[in-house]
Design a protein around this nucleic acid. Structure first.
Length: 436
RNA sequence: GCCCUGGUAGUAUAGUCCGGUUAGUAUACGGGCCUGUCGAGCCCGGGACCCGGGUUCAAAUCCCGGCCAGGGCGCCA
């Protein structure tokens, strides 16, 4: 028979002056121990936060004290004691320990300092990621991430979107361009999806408005702070809307997410030292052509039709702080499924959502005419044959539609003020990291 | 893939230019003292020069190659 686990009466954060003199039962990890000889202070950490447990020699039997002699960081403990208001404690309140049980011991020395007193490099931290995540600051990032995902789903449902799931294992490249990971698929070759693009377009003919939040894969040789091999995309596609309709949805989503994070993650924002403001609607919109002129004013020439390089975006980001859209990119710089403008097919009904110099989202009106789509496939040098299944759908009644894909982790970088995307991914994957 | 910079105890660093003491410090860890710590303090202890080759009387230090890391570019979200 296994002994039943001890019961928790309160979380660490609930140890507050209001419950002075209450008996509590706490479960958690030893964050720090400060042993003064006759008195010992334990910082007990659980998912909610940290509280102080005070152990007085005079209060406890020798046997218990002996077992506590080598109590160390990250040991799992069960503490029973009484809450006491205590002006001498920084938090104003502490738990005077009466019974302490060590449920699991951590090895020592630990490979990484969870309290953050000695800084560790990102590479070391990621090697011991589970320990790293116990640091309150790193922990806060992922509590905010949880709120972002919940807020996004809430927003989409309020706006009549249906959550869908499309395949991660695909037969051919959806967009050309980005490099794909090849996987063995029984006796043939398959690829990991880099985007839900074609599937979500097909699904608007059924559900009208769909969204998907999920991982996608790019086998790029990227070596930057904002690229990884596996990332999360928040994607939507909506029938009977054009680029302006989905831009409006996007900016409202961003505002909704900000509101929820500010409401629900005050403590985490404080820990991260982030002063998050709710952006004003609508976000500024600039055409590609206007941005070219702006760059010229800074003495940076860029041939019409070329996409912005990082140096261009950094210049634009200097001037445009916060969120803004760039619209109407040259058709040739965009994927085949983007709708060219009727009055000038050289430019497209496309947009990017930027935050300063960082690209957060990309979208636009999609082509809904099969003939035009086939023409664009050919122009981009793609083989129409591979898209037969997709093209058929256009014969069954394809409404005008538009959509976008938003880089979840990039948004999280903005919200948490982190400058390396690896900071905001639990277990990041890039060309140089496949474990843990 | 290309370019720049780096690799020293568990962690983070000094020393490297200009080759030569016992490779310094902080923190973590072990031992001791300590009844109000909250970056606790004080004393003691063990613990390191990425790998391979070369130059030299002598290499952490200089040279070459490799591997790894940080950043930038390209590509992209």
């Amino acid at each position: 028979m296994r002994r039943s686990p001890p019961r928790r009466s309160h979380y660490a954060i609930e140890v507050r002056p209001e419950i002075d003199n209450s008996r509590v039962s706490l479960l958690g990890w030893v964050h720090e121990v400060r042993d003064l000889g006759g008195i010992k202070f334990i910082l007990l950490r659980d998912v909610s936060g940290i509280c102080q447990v005070t152990i007085k020699k005079e209060n406890l039997p020798t046997e218990t004290l002996q077992r506590l002699e080598d109590l160390g960081a990250e040991d799992v403990v069960h503490v029973e004691g009484t809450v006491k208001n205590q002006p001498k404690a920084r938090l104003g309140v502490e738990v005077v320990g009466e019974k302490i049980e060590i449920l699991s011991r951590a090895s020592r020395p630990l490979p990484y300092d969870v309290t953050g007193k000695v800084p560790a490099g990102l590479d070391t931290r990621l090697d011991y990621r589970v320990l790293d995540l116990r640091n309150p600051e790193n922990n806060a990032i992922f509590k905010i991430a949880d709120t972002v995902l919940a807020a996004a789903r809430e927003f989409f449902r309020m706006n009549n979107f249906i959550e869908v799931r499309t395949p991660r294992i695909i037969a051919t490249a959806t967009e050309g361009g980005a490099a794909l990971f090849e996987v063995k698929y029984f006796d043939s070759k398959a690829y990991l999806a880099q985007s839900p693009q074609l599937y979500k377009e097909e699904l608007v003919t059924v559900f009208e408005r769909v969204f998907e939040i999920g991982p996608f894969f790019r086998a790029e040789e990227s070596h930057t702070r904002r690229h990884v091999s596996e990332f999360t995309s928040i994607d939507i596609e909506a029938a009977f809307l054009d680029l302006y309709g989905v831009m409006e949805i996007l900016e409202k989503l961003i505002v909704h997410i900000h509101k929820r994070v500010v409401e629900e993650r005050k403590k985490e924002l404080e820990i991260l030292n982030v002063d998050l403001n709710i952006p004003e609607l609508p976000f500024p919109r600039y055409a590609y052509d206007d941005m070219l002129k702006e760059l010229e004013n800074y003495g940076m020439e860029l041939a019409w039709g070329e996409d912005f390089g990082t140096e261009h975006l950094r210049i634009l980001g200097e001037k445009h702080r916060g969120y803004y859209f760039i619209t109407h990119f040259p058709t040739k710089s965009k994927p085949f499924y983007i709708q060219p403008c009727e009055d000038n097919p050289e430019i497209s009904e496309s947009f990017d959502l930027m935050y300063s110099w960082l690209e957060l989202a990309s979208g636009g009106t999609r082509i809904s005419d099969r003939k035009l789509l086939e023409k664009r496939l050919l122009e981009q040098g793609l083989n129409v044959k591979y898209f037969e299944h997709h093209l058929k759908v256009y014969d069954y009644g394809m409404p005008i539609h538009a959509g976008w894909g938003l880089g979840f982790e990039r948004l999280l970088m903005v919200l948490t003020n982190k400058n390396n995307i690896r900071e905001v991914i639990l277990f990041p994957r890039d060309k140089f990291r496949l474990v843990p």
